[in-house]
Simulated scan of single mutants.
Amino acid sequence: MKCMQEIVCGCAGKPERENNSSMRSNCATMLQLHRIDDGGRYVSENRASHNHEMLRTHAEKLHWPSHRHIDTYTRDLVKQLRQNNVNLGKVYTIIGSLFGRMENVPFTKRCLRTFCGKLSKEQADDDVRKTMDAFSELGSNDPEFSCVVEVDKESKIKTLLWTNGRSKMQYHNFGDVITFDTTYKTNLYDMPFGLFVGVNNHFQSIFMGVVMMREETIESFKRVFTEFIRLMGGKPPKTILTDQARAMEVAIQQTMPDATHRWCKWHVLRKAKEHLGPHYTKSSDFRAALYKVVNEMLTVDEFEAAWAELLDKYKLHNNTFLIQIFEVRHKWAKPYFSGKFCAKQISTQRSESANHLWKGYIPPACPMNLFVK
């Protein structure tokens, strides 16, 4: 037990290096306390004179080491805010409102940034174990929860796929048509994140499964699709919509040979403006005519005749972009899917919208365990 304690000025001692911005000036101000038998303390020595100018404003105290402490309650609040993807500036503003105004916050924004950095490091430490703990917790609350973890020779995670009981039930009822889309940089490891999304009888988006994968190769997609179908009871979808990734196309042909694979129409046409230049503007006749062909032609003969007429009218027979998308028209054009059930879906917009929504709640460089939670 301490029997003596000295409280010194923030300017006590010498600077560690010369010619720096340290406030230390060898100030001798000191309050010495001694403990007595009943646990109390008494002042045994008091040196009250400072050898430096005192602070002129209340806000200057923030730059002193003695005023950089973040109390426990504020730390808990900051932790919750950061886990919910609130950026540093907004966190500081919220804390300022709790203290009445920004000038009353007892620490600087730099201190807050340092603390948030420590939080991120703590969350990333032992990430795999924490992720498995999160899965165990999900499984204890949902007997139908399932996950697949694939590791490489170095025991690093290659693929992480999971789904729950509600998603399995949704797939059983509405799994005939699904969309699958991947997005990048939603986690600490920049692993592509994929969502299996469907639509229910009210045309509301429903989530079927979630996957994080290190590589986007044919073999990786084959494993993902095979495991997804297995988790869903072995029944593959009748129609699947994706973007134009070649690896994904080959994997779908091998794992779901009887399914109709449809490309997202938006992905096919998204480079139209780049390749068609002045022809493709909001006010141009060509753009309106193109969308009429794409959206309103119902039979193959109608589509091909209208396409040929469009090229003749605007003299675009040699346009590379139009030639390429016409060659793969059976993958995206409406007439070639006559008789195929698509649940009124023509793009992967539902998957992309879900990805965009989730990015609002998940920090862009969060560790895997926080991402799963």
Rank of each mutant, 00 (worst) to 15 (best):
6 E>A: 11
7 I>F: 14
7 I>P: 02
9 C>S: 15
11 C>E: 11
17 R>I: 10
18 E>I: 14
19 N>P: 12
20 N>Q: 11
25 S>M: 14
29 T>C: 13
30 M>G: 02
31 L>E: 04
32 Q>N: 05
33 L>W: 08
34 H>D: 09
38 D>H: 15
44 S>E: 12
46 N>G: 02
49 S>K: 15
51 N>A: 05
56 R>S: 13
61 K>F: 00
62 L>I: 15
64 W>S: 13
66 S>R: 12
72 T>E: 13
76 D>T: 14
83 Q>V: 00
83 Q>I: 00
86 V>L: 08
87 N>F: 08
87 N>V: 08
94 I>R: 07
95 I>D: 01
95 I>C: 03
96 G>W: 04
102 M>F: 00
103 E>C: 07
106 P>K: 02
108 T>C: 00
108 T>E: 01
109 K>F: 00
112 L>Y: 06
114 T>V: 01
114 T>M: 05
116 C>F: 01
121 K>D: 01
121 K>T: 08
129 R>L: 02
131 T>I: 02
134 A>T: 14
139 G>A: 14
145 F>R: 03
151 V>T: 14
154 E>Q: 14
156 K>G: 01
156 K>A: 08
158 K>S: 09
161 L>F: 08
162 W>M: 03
167 S>N: 05
167 S>G: 05
167 S>F: 00
169 M>D: 09
170 Q>R: 09
176 D>S: 05
178 I>L: 11
180 F>P: 05
185 K>I: 01
190 D>Q: 13
195 L>Q: 00
196 F>N: 00
197 V>P: 04
198 G>L: 02
200 N>Y: 09
203 F>L: 09
205 S>G: 10
206 I>Y: 01
208 M>D: 00
210 V>F: 11
213 M>T: 09
215 E>F: 08
226 T>V: 03
229 I>A: 11
232 M>R: 06
233 G>W: 09
237 P>K: 08
239 T>E: 01
242 T>M: 06
242 T>C: 08
248 M>C: 08
250 V>K: 10
253 Q>V: 03
257 P>Q: 10
257 P>R: 12
259 A>V: 07
264 C>N: 09
265 K>I: 03
269 L>E: 02
270 R>W: 00
272 A>H: 12
272 A>G: 12
273 K>M: 03
276 L>G: 11
277 G>I: 09
278 P>L: 10
278 P>I: 07
279 H>S: 12
283 S>V: 13
284 S>R: 10
288 A>E: 14
307 W>F: 11
307 W>L: 02
309 E>N: 15
310 L>V: 12
311 L>S: 11
312 D>K: 15
321 F>W: 15
326 F>L: 15
327 E>T: 13
332 W>T: 07
333 A>R: 05
335 P>F: 04
338 S>C: 14
339 G>S: 11
339 G>H: 10
340 K>E: 13
343 A>D: 08
343 A>F: 10
344 K>H: 14
349 Q>A: 12
350 R>P: 05
357 L>I: 12
359 K>L: 01
359 K>M: 12
361 Y>Q: 14
362 I>L: 05
363 P>C: 06
365 A>M: 10
366 C>Y: 02
366 C>F: 03
370 L>A: 07
371 F>K: 04
373 K>W: 06
